[in-house]
Amino acid sequence: MSDRIFAVLWLLLCAGMAAVGWGISTEFAYEPVGPRAYPLLILALMAVCSAWLLFKPGEAVDWPRGALLKKVAVMIVAVLLYALIFESAGFAVATALLTVAIGRLFDGKWLHCAVGGVVMGVALFYFFDRLLDVPLPGGLLLG
């Protein structure tokens, strides 16, 4: 079933992308194959594979359920939020928050996660930004 849903979505995506790709054009053409043909070829092949998958799907996928699904959702939100606040809040603060969020998912105790997060955020910041010269956003605390 999952394969079929994926195949339908992917076919729609291929169609949408093909519509966008059709509009690719150059003013001057000095080679027999321009920039448009190859992406359209790939899209066509993807559509064929998706159609195949639609008619001959693989085995059912064991999606996470219940508590595990909730954990996966929390992790996705945590990683997205981390990406979004990384620059504004700064590396150390964002990493500390991420550690608490993910650490709790892996059954860490509140205190352990909090202490570990703060230590990791600050230590990694100094390690990369100061010692190895990989620039990181200082943000709220270390800016």
């Binding site: 981390y82 590396f91 993910i102 650490g103 059954d107 860490g108 570990g116 955020g121 990989v134």
Partner: peptide, 17 residues
Amino acid sequence: FLLVPGIAAISTVGVYA
């Protein structure tokens, strides 16, 4: 609970760089 956020943070450092 420390390893996984560590992997996430270090990976992000690489992308951000």
